[in-house]
Computed example of a mutant assay.
Amino acid sequence: MIPTTTAATPLAAIALRRNSFGRLIFIGADGVESENVIPVRAFPIGAPDHGISIVSSDGHELAWIERLEQVSAEVRGLIEEELASREFMPEILRIVGVSTYATPSDWTVETSRGITTFTLKGEEDIRRLPQSALLIADSHSIQFLVRDQKALDKHSRKILDRFL
Rank of each mutant, 00 (worst) to 15 (best):
G28T: 03
G28F: 01
D30W: 00
D30S: 01
D30V: 00
D30Q: 01
G31W: 01
V32W: 10
E33T: 09
E33H: 06
E33S: 13
E33W: 06
S34D: 08
S34L: 06
N36E: 12
N36Q: 12
V37T: 01
P39Y: 07
P39W: 02
P39V: 06
P39H: 00
V40I: 13
V40K: 04
V40G: 10
V40R: 03
A42V: 13
A42L: 14
A42K: 08
F43T: 09
F43L: 13
F43M: 08
P44G: 09
P44T: 02
I45Q: 01
I45V: 02
G46L: 14
G46P: 05
G46D: 11
G46Y: 08
G46F: 02
G46C: 12
A47E: 14
A47S: 14
P48Y: 04
D49G: 12
H50T: 12
H50A: 14
G51Q: 02
G51T: 00
G51F: 08
S53Y: 09
S53K: 02
I54T: 03
V55G: 04
V55I: 12
V55W: 04
S56G: 08
S57K: 11
S57A: 14
D58R: 03
G59N: 05
E61P: 01
L62P: 02
L62W: 05
A63H: 02
W64S: 13
I65S: 11
I65K: 01
E66A: 15
E66M: 10
E66F: 11
E66Q: 10
R67C: 15
R67K: 14
L68H: 00
E69K: 07
Q70Y: 04
Q70D: 15
Q70S: 05
Q70R: 01
Q70P: 08
Q70L: 13
